[in-house]
Nucleic acid binder design. Structure first.
Lengths: 219, 219
DNA sequence: GTCTATACTAGGATAGAC
DNA sequence: GTCTATCCTAGTATAGAC
């Protein structure tokens, strides 16, 4: 361990800095996280941090890039397996719940930067947009697979947005109440109702396509 | 105007400071908003700001308190008028959409502080919790009125949480895409389906109480 | 209540030895 | 790649005249 090749030391230090910075920034936000805090927490001197990342913004961009990669890698393939809609939907919701529960840091970094986006550097803003776009695309592909919506892209879009907003809202709820989880039960009912409302066959459902009288969707 | 009673000048300055501080803090967050920024933006010297509010934290607490009061005052009474569920639901959703669209600053301050809650002073944390609890209580009372749920408090709770999470998620979506609005159409369908799923009569609906096969709510 | 001026600290960033 | 030491700016907060 202590005899690790010198070639690795730089990479290991870099990782340690990113770990620490990611943790602190996701907890306190970018502005409230100082280089000296990071230095004190990870044990490396300030100048080493500047040697690895040219600036505080450079640290931020690297932290975001890493969080994005980790979260996206943790997302299961958008081709949801399962014989029928109900089965695929359960699989999908379980996966979403898992990903958001196991990567709170990435989600918080995304939300944190999103919130003060106008202050961010171009590089950081680009990073966070890539993050967000990838999530949205994944959600769209997944619901499209779950409900077999390849010929109804607008419906897939609506369902994906709905799901992601519920997930974001849950992330918000969670920093007020750490025990809050994505409530897949109600979300399941809601997604099925929305699909049915748009005339998408979901199996095992009566001919009715709306749970009440005339409904305007505003589209 | 220039001859306004001296008694008013203090109050007017105080208001101007709060306006400016609220705007800057909701845009940049607490940590990234400096006293000198506020001073430059509102025209009053730093020391006047400190005279009105003893510290930066004091400004924050006052800003939050004011945003909370304004948002809660803008919320319509929880006794939603309307002859049937569909009518009351439409009224309620319109009101929610309105409140969140017209008070983006208050929502953003709430979310911003919620996110870095652990750094906040006890006073600021108390303020934000009062904010959040009041919103939740209002939503619970409102859906209870819409769906006549006085004897089903758990259902009212679930629907209220669902609505607020969707609203929070939309607030998040909005700072990535300023044009995003609370999509009341899908939310309407979802709430009706959830109520039906719990056996709540919503009027004009067939006997079916679930849109698909066996459903587990996790409760 | 408002202004000018200032004390004091902490932050971001760099130099240069090792 | 890492360390010590340092520069400079900007931040919070206060003193005291008006």
């Amino acid at each position: 361990m202590t005899e690790a090749p010198a070639l690795d030391r730089g990479a290991r230090s870099r990782d340690a800095i990113l770990d620490t910075a990611g943790d602190l920034m996701s907890r306190h936000g970018y502005a409230a996280t100082s280089i000296s805090m990071i230095s004190a927490a990870c044990g490396l001197p300030v100048s080493s941090i500047y040697w690895h990342f040219r600036s505080k913004d450079g640290i931020y961009v690297a932290v975001l890039e890493r969080a994005r990669t980790a979260l996206l890698a943790a997302l299961p393939p958008a081709e949801v397996p399962g014989a029928d809609v109900a089965q695929r939907l359960d699989t999908f919701l379980t996966e979403v719940e898992d990903a958001f529960r196991r990567h709170p840091r990435g989600v918080k970094l995304l939300l944190g930067l999103g919130m003060v986006q106008q202050d961010a550097s171009a590089a950081a803003a680009a990073e966070v947009h890539q993050y967000r776009d990838a999530l949205l695309a994944w959600a769209r592909d997944s619901v499209s697979s779950v409900f077999a919506l390849c010929d109804r892209p607008e419906v897939a879009d609506e369902l994906a947005r709905f799901t992601l907003r519920m997930a974001s809202g849950t992330a918000v709820a969670r920093w007020f109440d750490p025990d809050a989880v994505l409530e897949t039960g109600p979300l399941r009912v809601a997604l099925l109702a929305l699909a049915t409302h748009h005339g998408v066959p979901v199996g095992g459902v009566p001919g009715e396509d709306a749970p009440s009288g005339p409904v305007t969707t505003g589209e």
